[in-house]
Simulated assay, not measured.
Amino acid sequence: MARGGSAVAVLSFLLGLPLLSVLVAGEDPYRFFTWNVSYGDIYPLGVKQQGILINGQFPGPQIEAVTNDNLVVNVFNKLNEPFLLSWYTP
């Protein structure tokens, strides 16, 4: 009798597994960033010069994300000219 009960439990599990995968639906995660773009002093090769900073950093902050993450980047341009931003993902 115990053997028949375990077979029913296994069969119920196997039949319910596809239903469970349909019921458990998640969307891709969102990652939010706020960037303040401004001028500041940078020292490449030890020589002081004016550069563009993001949140006071040069180079700017690293984005840590994985495939299918939704990135929302709010950029506030505090420069006295338009600013174009692009990036490369290997």
Rank of each mutant, 00 (worst) to 15 (best):
F13V: 07
P18N: 04
F33S: 10
S6R: 14
L84T: 00
A2D: 00
F58N: 09
N68I: 04
G60T: 04
N70V: 04
A9Q: 11
Y88P: 01
R31H: 11
P44V: 14
A25D: 09
I52V: 14
A65T: 11
G60A: 04
A7E: 07
L79W: 00
P82E: 11
F32Y: 15
P18Q: 08
G40W: 13
A25K: 11
V66C: 06
L11V: 01
S21T: 13
F76N: 03
G40F: 03
I52M: 06
F76A: 01
P90E: 06
V37C: 00
T89Y: 00
G46F: 13
F33C: 04
G26F: 05
P18C: 08
L71H: 07
S86G: 02
G60R: 04
F33L: 10
G4E: 10
G60W: 03
T89P: 00
A25Q: 14
Y30N: 07
P82H: 08
L20S: 13
V72T: 05
P59F: 10
G40A: 10
V37L: 00
R31S: 09
L19A: 09
Y39E: 11
N36C: 03
P82R: 08
F32I: 15
V22Y: 15
E81V: 11
F83L: 03
A9T: 12
L53E: 02
I52R: 02
I52L: 04
D28P: 02
F58M: 08
Y43K: 03
D69H: 08
Y88A: 00
G16I: 01
P82I: 04
P61Y: 12
T34P: 06
P29Q: 02
I54N: 03
N55W: 05
Y30V: 13
Y43M: 01
L14H: 01
V8T: 15
S38E: 15
G56D: 06
V37W: 01
